[in-house]
């Protein structure tokens, strides 16, 4: 049963991602991006990580993709068809192969051999919270600083835009 779900979700995720890249109509591309992100949330649920799945929906479907669709809908009259040069295409291919190989290598060596949990105790959201606030407090601070600097940068750009007009 789980295998079938996994198959359906994988096809949904990868297929929708391909449509998102290849679709001529930008809005359809954006919507299929949402479908792809939902597929990833489903994969999280299969891994017993319901909390992460819900955060995935909350952040990526509820916020990020809405902003993407918003931007895409505002510019729908124009056609953005850019043909990359041969050099750029080869470079893109190389970078993506390297990326996939690196992530695959890390995943193979991380000790995750099966999608079934080794023990019966699935870490709950309480454990995640305790870990984030005790062991991983430093990355949390860094993340906060990065987000704050991004917000300040966006505000600065918006202010400059207004000043020129």
């Amino acid at each position: 049963m789980v295998d079938y779900f996994f198959l359906v979700l994988s096809v949904m995720t990868v297929g929708a991602a391909i449509i998102a890249l290849e679709s001529r109509e930008l809005v359809y591309g954006a919507i299929s991006l949402v479908v792809s992100l939902l597929g990833i949330a489903g994969l999280f649920i299969l891994l017993d990580a319901t909390f992460l799945a819900m955060l995935q929906i909350l952040v990526f479907v509820g916020a990020v993709s809405v902003l993407i669709i918003f931007v895409v809908m505002l510019v729908r009259r124009e056609k953005w068809v850019s043909v990359p040069s041969g050099y750029g295409r080869v470079a893109g291919l190389l970078v993506s192969i390297l990326l996939i190989a690196g992530v695959g290598y890390l995943a193979m060596n991380s000790g995750i051999a099966t999608m079934f949990p080794s023990s019966n105790s699935v870490p709950s959201y309480v454990d995640i919270g305790i870990k984030v606030l005790s062991d991983y407090w430093f990355p949390l601070q860094i993340l906060g600083l990065v987000l704050a600097s991004a917000v300040i940068g966006a505000l600065t750009l918006a202010k400059f835009e207004g000043a020129e007009q």
């Binding site: 819900m54 929906i57 909350l58 479907v61 509820g62 916020a63």
Partner: peptide
Amino acid sequence: IIFAILSFTPL
């Protein structure tokens, strides 16, 4: 989960 479901509304 409730908030995650409600976040579909703007879409």
